[in-house]
Design a protein around this nucleic acid. Structure first.
Lengths: 130, 130
DNA sequence: ATCGTTCTCAACCATTTGGTTGACAGGCCT
DNA sequence: AGGCCTGTCAACCAAATGGTTGAGAACGAT
């Protein structure tokens, strides 16, 4: 029961990660997010600067919404879009995890090389100062 | 001259950001990156766990390489893949920039709401302690 | 020189993606 | 009620994506 829930959650998270990364893989969408970081905006306002149709921008917004990056509320015929900055944490956590893993590995490699150098085995350096 | 260079660089960076985000939008590729964070690996080693062809994994690696996330060296007929963790900084910088922007805005909103509450306008709170 | 291993390239296929246009729904304003 | 904004939905199209198989390049080993 609980395990199943956890698995589901993991799947959902993985899917959301995929959707979020994929969503930000498009320059127009990244630009939209950048502008929404400054302030909420309607579809029309967001679409104005780009030379694509309003419908295209509407689609981009749907992608961002599916990724959980933006939410839309109602205001008469307008649909103000709001950035959900919370989702950024998901990405940052993923990135940070593997960055640190890689970095620690790099540190260990450095240590090994230093040790080798100490034993004068050094095979690929041309001028070891110390 | 210099301006042109800068523009080029900006374009390249934007393109790379797009490529990096897009690359990580695929779960298989994200998994490959996760494994490469632990240690370098050959194409065959990387392909083993997945039930797709070696060629498919080779393509994934090309995508990751084009994004600057992995580099490949030679070792006889093998092509060891290495994670370039540096690229993570590019993403983190972008994310951090807009996250903080959005967060600051949120703080200001909070301040405004607090002020309104001070003036007893408060419309949507049930029990303000302070 | 030939063989086995490891991997890439090329051609092909199905699906997804990003864009278009046209129709129309929802909600203001006379 | 009719008109005007704002935005979505639907159908369609071209290009990109993720996968396949088959051929072959590069290299070590025998």
């Amino acid at each position: 029961m609980i395990n199943q829930k956890v698995e589901e959650k993991d799947d959902d998270m993985a899917d959301q990660l995929s959707r979020v990364f994929a969503a930000l893989g498009d320059p127009t969408r990244r630009d939209i997010v950048a502008r929404l970081a400054a302030q909420d905006a309607t579809v029309g306002e967001l679409a104005a600067p780009y030379d694509v149709s309003l419908q295209a921008v509407s689609k981009h917004l749907k992608v961002l919404e599916d990724a959980g990056l933006v939410t839309r509320t109602r205001d008469a015929q307008r649909r103000p879009c709001h950035l959900e900055a919370e989702v950024f944490n998901l990405m940052t956590k993923w990135i940070e995890r593997y960055r640190s893993e890689a970095e620690e590995r790099y540190q260990r490699l450095d240590a090994v090389l230093a040790q080798m150098q100490g034993r004068t085995i050094r095979s690929h350096d041309q001028g070891a100062a110390s």
